[in-house]
Simulated assay, not measured.
Amino acid sequence: MIEFIELKNNLGVEVTLCTLGASIYDIKTMDKDKKLESIIYTTKDKKDFITERSCLGKTIGRTGGRISNSTYTLNGIRYTIPSYDPNGLHGGIDGVGYKEFDYKQNETEEYYEVIFSYFSKDMESGYPGNFNLKVIYKLYKDINKLTLSYKGISDKDTLVNLSNHSYFNLSGNAKGSILNHSLYINASKMERIEHLLPKEIVDCKEIYSFKTMHKIGDYLMHPEIKNNTNGYDFPYIFDNWNKDLFNVVLKDPDSKRVLKIKTTYPVVVIYTCNYTGREIMNNDKVMTPYYAVCLECMFHPNTINSDFLQDKKDILKAGEEYNQAIEYYFDIEG
């Protein structure tokens, strides 16, 4: 049975998790006037959260992002990922984001912890190896901090590139679009996208760069972006990567809410909710383009099929531990 787990810290942050996809259903934080509102673009009805296919808040994997032509070759064997998308999006139609996880809860003096567990069988969704996966959330009691840890081990070489696909909107209950949100990314290089697939590493041109914080809407409608991906949908490569740096910062000028991100991953994919959906969202409207931004920290997507990337970090060797993390910090500007 699919369950929702609610956590609340001493500073008023409320987090609702779900056993389907070890996912984030909602996060609520205070604005400048201490008004508690959702900063996640999510479905109004929990039943819709269970049936939607936009990966709202889900753990995407075994591989986040696209795998070109939904196929890859590993150790001389060719594998196919069953997918609605021609390029094996977010682990395919049978990815871990739509699996029911077991869970247990712990509490320490510092934090509330939820440990989600799932056993992905050999060849499930086109991935070799029996893969034991844990997704661990910690909501800190006296710091506005939520951490996500991904841990796993496989008995065969396999592909793993896990992330969270939450749709952020700091305005509060998605009362406005994210075009007025300001975004900082510690990246001067990105991957050029062609037909939604990475083709090469390039310097960030002005219309793509967030190295200097500016509004998401400043260049989103530029023809080069609109005609390619209908909005931002690009992997950014962190400069001088350090897991202790805030490599991504998102701000809303009206509510004054701030989201800061640290991660062990070297890349963040920025996706600005470029297409509509059918579900009624928590602003009582159908999912609308540019009403959220996904900040997907991960390894380079589609590394297995990319000649321009030699470091295949998404290949998990048999018996080796997958161990990556994302940290969200919630703040008020000023």
Rank of each mutant, 00 (worst) to 15 (best):
Y127F: 15
K35N: 15
S68E: 15
K58L: 06
Y84P: 14
I50P: 04
G65L: 03
G129Q: 04
L36H: 15
G95N: 08
E124N: 13
G64H: 04
T63R: 04
F116V: 09
R78K: 13
Q105K: 14
L89V: 07
T108N: 02
N132G: 11
P128L: 12
D48A: 03
E124Q: 14
I60T: 12
Y79M: 07
K104I: 14
V96T: 11
R78H: 05
K99S: 02
K35A: 10
P86A: 01
T108I: 07
L36I: 12
K104S: 13
G126W: 00
F116T: 01
F49P: 02
K58V: 02
K32Q: 10
R53A: 13
T73I: 05
G64C: 05
T51P: 09
V96P: 10
I67K: 00
M123P: 11
K44G: 04
K104M: 12
N106S: 15
T59K: 10
F49K: 01
D102R: 11
S68L: 07
G65A: 08
G57N: 00
G129V: 06
Y84G: 15
M123L: 13
F119G: 06
L36Y: 09
K121G: 12
L56T: 13
T63D: 09
Y98G: 07
G76W: 08
N106D: 15
L56I: 06
S54I: 10
F119N: 15
T42C: 09
T42F: 01
G92W: 03
G65C: 07
R66N: 10
